[in-house]
Simulated scan of single mutants.
Amino acid sequence: MLVRQTIVPVMTNRLIIGDTPLLPLRNASQSLPCTLYAKAEMYNPSGSIKDRLANSLIDAAERDGRLSPHGVVIEVTSGNTGIAVAWVCACRGYKSIIVMSDKNSREKQDMMKAFGAELILTPHTAKPDDPSSNYKTAERLATQIPRSFYLDQYNNPANIDCHYCTTGPEIWEQTEGQIDCFIAGAGTGGTISGVGRFLKERNPAIEIVAVDSEGSIFTSYFETGKLGVAEHYEIEGIGSDKLVGAMDFNVVDRFLPISDKEAFLTAREMARTEGIFCGGSSGAVLAATRKVVRERQDIKCPVMILADSGNRYLSKIYNDSWMKEMGYLD
């Protein structure tokens, strides 16, 4: 006998995005002055927080008439947005073309292709203004392909709006307004900016901590106001080699850079001790959260974002041979 259930048509995929669980990290909180809470965004349909973004960007493009039926969606990604865009496009009948650096994992590439995306890889050594960079490649394609639209998550206001309207309110409700510190990775800037803006409007005393990659330009720019030179880093999904429009530095209280090694080892630890299978950026966020609560003994309800699942990093951070080759494991 069938029990009553909600049947969601595929075309209304927006109904199954969000409302992700807030999990207490019991083992990670040991020896700390408070319990750490993690919003598990890998529970979104395509496996990451970027489902919120892709759905919002495509909704906005449809609403504004910039994306027509059977159109072509173009996007630059470090992986998760590309997967989410490919999934939404598969649901709605659009073709997707994803431009991505060749440093990102094979699993991400395969997931995009599984949803029907055309994938274009660019050299990770290319600077932002280089014609072969992912940014310039996407811009060029958008001028050459008829009925195409470049989402441009890095500079699209809908990136911030989707987290202001969904992720922020969910966290506020789940903590009953008790949250006093929010920690998330800064990549496109949308999550930290949108959630941070929402929370600051409810309680200006909430500390907003942006987690960065060592080698990214964000931290030095936030602290000095000057643009530095980006260096290579392996963490996918956080950090940047240029300033982007979706990063609102005004809502952030602090940037905290984390090394590749610390991020990856912490992610592996979380899988073993919490049973939470997450990516390297989530490892960086947990490492940063621990540092913050050790320094700030007055924090009682810190909430962090775990952006994606570890299933897209099996060939990298969950592969002992790769970790040893990169010098992250002895």
Rank of each mutant, 00 (worst) to 15 (best):
I7D: 11
I7C: 09
V8C: 07
V8E: 05
P9C: 04
P9L: 05
V10P: 12
V10S: 14
V10T: 15
V10Y: 13
M11P: 02
M11F: 12
M11H: 14
T12K: 10
T12V: 04
T12F: 06
T12N: 11
T12Y: 08
N13I: 04
R14L: 05
R14T: 01
R14D: 08
L15D: 12
L15P: 03
L15M: 15
I16W: 07
I17Y: 01
G18Y: 05
G18L: 08
G18S: 08
G18V: 03
G18M: 07
D19R: 13
T20W: 09
P21T: 09
P21N: 10
P21E: 10
L22N: 08
L22Y: 07
L22V: 15
L23P: 00
P24W: 08
P24V: 12
P24F: 10
P24N: 06
L25M: 12
R26W: 14
R26G: 03
R26E: 14
N27K: 09
N27Q: 08
N27W: 00
A28M: 13
S29K: 06
Q30M: 13
Q30V: 10
Q30E: 15
Q30R: 15
L32T: 11
P33V: 03
C34K: 04
C34N: 06
C34L: 04
T35P: 03
T35M: 11
T35L: 08
L36H: 02
Y37P: 00
K39G: 04
K39N: 06
K39S: 04
A40E: 04
A40K: 02
A40N: 10
E41A: 13
M42K: 02
M42F: 14
N44I: 02
N44L: 05
P45L: 11
P45T: 00
S46N: 13
S46T: 15
G47R: 11
G47W: 03
G47L: 07
S48H: 02
S48Q: 04
I49L: 10
I49N: 00
D51W: 04
L53M: 13
A54K: 01
A54L: 04
A54E: 01
S56H: 08
S56I: 00
S56A: 15
S56Q: 11
S56D: 01
L57A: 10
I58V: 09
I58K: 02
D59I: 04
